[in-house]
């Protein structure tokens, strides 16, 4: 993906640059809001990674202006400000995701992937979500594997749906905590692990390998070609 990284702190920029380049993305770094505005308006990007605190034009204003100008490129905010108000402000300005510093490279990479693909996907309104041999009917909220109905609770269904929508990509625990439960903090217990484990049992999965795979140190991934 072509990513525009807007970050004025040299070290953080290098850190993110290295992490994302390793994943195969091509990056361009802008060090202040005005330069970023110019670059973002003139060229096509698959994703914007924007630090909130920037000289000349802060991150929020930058994204707001781009959205007002019709740019729909997904935007991920990076910031040390992690409180509720800050997050809400970021989303209201037109950001699509919000990552609090300090962050792990794996976290950044996973979110970048998720956002990038979201934009690329054609979006015909689908009523059935289908990955491998698992399918979910979005109208009746029923899930099946190999045609057999699965008895899933509401949360488990949502986890499965989230994994399916990000099939083939790593989904971190933080992403699950935020999307499924709305937890914007790190629980001290392995809450995500337990719920995934339950889901696996219901899917009839016996190992950590598939279809819901545990990616060590990173998170989970749903195999696209499941067995």
């Amino acid at each position: 993906m072509r990513i525009l990284l807007v970050e004025d702190d040299r070290e953080t920029a290098d850190y993110a640059l290295q992490g994302l380049t390793r994943e195969g993305h091509s990056l361009r770094v802008a060090t202040d809001g005005r330069e970023a505005l110019l670059l973002a308006s003139c060229e096509d990007w698959d994703l914007l990674v924007v630090d909130r605190m920037l000289p000349h034009l802060d991150g929020l204003a930058l994204v707001r202006m781009l959205r007002a100008g019709g740019t729909t490129t997904p935007a991920l905010f990076l910031t040390a400000l992690g409180e509720v108000n800050d997050r809400v402000a970021g989303l209201q300005a037109g950001g699509d995701d919000y990552l609090v510093k300090p962050f792990a490279l794996a976290e950044l990479a996973a979110r970048v992937e998720a956002l990038g693909r979201r934009a690329q996907r054609q979006v015909p309104p689908e009523t059935v979500l289908s990955v491998g041999d698992i399918e979910i009917d979005l109208l009746t909220h029923l899930a099946r594997r190999r045609g057999e109905p699965l008895d899933l609770q509401e949360r488990e269904l949502r986890i499965l749906e989230y994994l399916m929508r990000n099939a083939g990509r790593v989904v971190t625990r933080t992403m699950l905590l935020e999307s499924i439960w709305g937890f914007h903090f790190t629980p001290r217990t392995n809450l995500v692990e337990s719920n995934i484990s339950r889901l696996r049992t219901k899917l009839g999965q016996e190992s950590d390998a598939g279809p819901i795979e545990t990616v060590r140190g990173l998170g989970y991934r749903l195999h696209v070609r499941g067995r």
């Binding site: 949360r155 439960w181 709305g182 937890f183 217990t189 392995n190 809450l191 337990s194 719920n195 484990s197 339950r198």
Partner: peptide, 13 residues
């Protein structure tokens, strides 16, 4: 209730 629901799996384990 939302919180309890989230932790039920952990608790059972």
């Amino acid at each position: 209730e939302d919180v309890t629901q989230a932790y039920r799996a952990v608790a059972e384990e």
